[in-house]
């Protein structure tokens, strides 16, 4: 069960309170009635379903009721960030991705997630 930071409630809440709502940043065309078949297909049917960083919508349906967006790594399930609906699609840096991507096979031993000296912070 994921722990999801709701940008409106300003804290992490259990996944049970949320419902996924598909890919984010697909705007409904303002001239809906006039768009071409091809554009409608793209708008309604075609989704990227990336392996890696995905931008997705969630609704805090059993909480504040708000829809919001998240950038998440689809392999590790880890969230990079969540942000309010209507906010611009954030640029995700390599450092941010590296922090959430699953360790590759054969990766040499790295630092544990939190160091045993007490100084390390959780990733």
């Amino acid at each position: 069960m994921l722990l999801i930071h709701c940008p409106y409630c300003e804290e992490e809440r259990p996944e049970l309170e949320f419902r996924g709502a598909g890919e984010a940043h697909i705007a409904r065309p303002a001239n809906m009635a006039e768009i071409s078949d091809a554009d409608f297909e793209k708008f309604f049917f075609i989704r990227d379903n990336e392996k890696g960083v995905v931008y997705e919508r969630w609704r805090h349906i059993h909480g504040c009721g708000r829809f919001f967006n998240a950038a998440r790594h689809s392999v590790s399930d880890k969230f990079i960030m969540t942000y309010k609906a209507g906010e611009k699609k954030p640029k995700i840096t390599k450092t941010q991705i590296d922090a959430v991507k699953p360790p590759a096979k054969g990766t040499p031993a790295n630092e544990p997630v939190w160091t045993v000296g007490g100084k390390g912070e959780a990733k």
Binding site: C9, R13, G63, C64, G65
Partner: peptide, 10 residues
């Protein structure tokens, strides 16, 4: 206060 869930109910 918070809207949340209890078992299978909101």
């Amino acid at each position: 206060c918070s809207r949340t869930i209890l078992g299978k109910s909101e």
